[in-house]
Design a protein around this nucleic acid. Structure first.
Lengths: 176, 176
DNA sequence: CAAGAGTATTTCGCATACGAAGTATTAATG
DNA sequence: CATTAATACTTCGTATGCGAAATACTCTTG
């Protein structure tokens, strides 16, 4: 417990800078995604929905909300607006009538093909500045942080999110 | 240009996971900050404002919005609500009458002292799981990413943000 | 010093984003 | 089989968060 005071302060500064930079990267990527999506009459989250559905075909509302790391009530609104714009349609599941399946309409599919932008493209592009070695190291450290966060959150986490890594996330994986 | 196809795919996967994890860390930290702030009748951004002002004393609206990495119009609303709650007060600057200076009220100061939570506390706490070596490496890689993003954004960035590192950010630095 | 360019904030409309409560449906329990 | 618990969504109210336009003021130039 007798850590030199100097190093402790230095570490605090480093932590501050890490948090700061992380917020910058996230915020700026999001902002640019939104701006680019706007050129195609879409919002950021709507672009994410389109890319997710184009890759997978059909998702329930809950699957969508988990992939996008938001709550169901948020996605309900997004899908409402996309349905009004005829980009997407809702269908009740046959097996479980509580479930709503969401699919692209022809218009939605056409749009998915014509829009080249990936969600969080800015961030992806920035990653190419890293050497493969650095990318691996970054991933390893982030995974450790993720584990630490999940442990400290304990039971508070959304149920599905704690298994492996299949939450497809905002970063719409075009081909699963 | 003749990279083995295998490695290229692998790298894409790694990029996806990095983006995914980053979003997870940001989103979950934000969510918990909000939840904890609520115990003190505050929202997440309001907590950030309070911690920033408690550390520095007085900030203009633009300084606040840069520190929080949001737009002026967003902060106007946050300050409106905080002013209604008597947590903060607006004062016109003497030197430049366009500028609005924002300060804590006595009630705001009291609250700042009684609330132990730092914004993004979850994320800060997770950082302690890293070794000093890992923290240094993470910071270095994130800095590289930040530079890459700033370069590709070019002139699009908010003017003040490209100087050094004084943007205090969401991660309210209590003592400047 | 007057006209125009530039800056700081606000206002407005819209789209997330969240939690709490409500509804419909399915599963679990006795 | 009837309750009760659990799950999937929706609805509602509130708070961001953003860009575009308006307002008020300051700085430049001629």
């Amino acid at each position: 417990m007798a850590l030199p005071h100097f190093e402790e302060t230095e570490e605090r500064e480093a932590f501050d800078r890490i948090v700061e930079t992380l917020i910058f990267l996230y915020t700026e990527s999001r902002r640019l995604t939104k701006e680019q999506a706007r050129a195609h009459e879409l919002t950021g989250p709507q672009l994410t929905v389109i890319k997710l559905l184009a890759g997978i075909g059909e998702l329930s509302l809950t699957e969508l909300s988990e992939s996008m790391q938001t709550r169901n009530s948020t996605v309900t609104g997004i899908i409402d607006r996309m349905e009004s714009a005829d980009l997407v349609k809702r269908m009740r599941s046959e097996e479980d009538r509580r479930v709503v399946k969401i699919r692209l309409t022809p218009k939605g599919k056409a749009l998915a093909k014509s829009v080249p932008i990936e969600p969080m493209a800015l961030f992806r592009q920035a990653l190419e500045a890293l050497s493969p070695q650095e990318a691996r190291t970054l991933l390893k450290i982030l995974a450790k942080l993720e584990k630490s966060v999940r442990d400290s959150l304990g039971g508070e986490l959304r149920p599905s999110a704690d298994s492996t890594h299949d939450a497809t996330t905002n970063g719409a994986r075009t081909k699963p």
